[in-house]
């Protein structure tokens, strides 16, 4: 039933999950590395100004977090998946805190496709579905732009076909 034994709840029967591009992991790793390395700058500056090399050790927690994040990001990205069923779209994500969102096509209000500069460099984009509810968090990151646009158009046309009022 499931790839992993404890995965049953988040793996409804008969659902073929589509994984997102592993390039998303690269992008996220870069982002995480930049974020953590920025914290190194004040440490280096302080160490140079005060001439105390041990100040660099203050960055160590960030370094540990960076290593952990680099390892985890791969698994996190692998956990992201989506599936287009006949009437609704399923999106799941998360390792520790898992979520699965079921969005009926007829409930979609609009679809966003977005891509930041790094995303574009690595050739991925994010598709986000919006319903009338603020609670709907159906975001599919890490799709190749062509796939993202195809998905968007497909979702939009399906949404139109099954459109329902609020």
């Amino acid at each position: 039933m499931a790839a992993r034994a404890d995965d049953g709840v988040f793996d409804p029967q008969g659902v073929e999950w589509t994984r997102v591009s592993p390039r998303l992991a690269t992008v996220r790793r870069i982002g995480s590395a930049v974020g953590h390395l920025v914290m190194l700058v004040p440490a280096v500056v302080l160490a140079l100004v005060l001439d105390r090399t041990w100040i660099l050790l203050l960055w160590l927690p960030f370094g540990v977090m960076l290593v952990v994040a680099q390892v985890l990001i791969g698994r996190q990205v692998a956990a992201i998946g989506y599936a287009e069923r006949e009437d609704d779209l399923l999106v799941r994500e998360g390792l520790l805190f898992r979520t699965l969102v079921v969005v009926p096509y007829g409930r979609m209000q609009y679809v966003d496709v977005s891509a930041g500069p790094v995303d574009r460099r690595f050739g991925i984009a994010t598709v986000q579905l919006h319903t009338a509810s603020a609670g709907t968090d159906a975001t599919i990151p890490g799709l190749p732009p062509a796939d993202a646009e195809r998905l968007r158009d497909r979702l939009a046309s399906r949404g139109e076909a099954r459109l329902a009022g609020l």
Binding site: V9, L96, F97, R98, V101, R107, A132, G135, T136
Partner: peptide, 10 residues
């Protein structure tokens, strides 16, 4: 119902 969510923490 707009959409449905399933959540599970550790």
């Amino acid at each position: 119902t707009q959409s449905l969510g399933l959540e599970q923490g550790p």
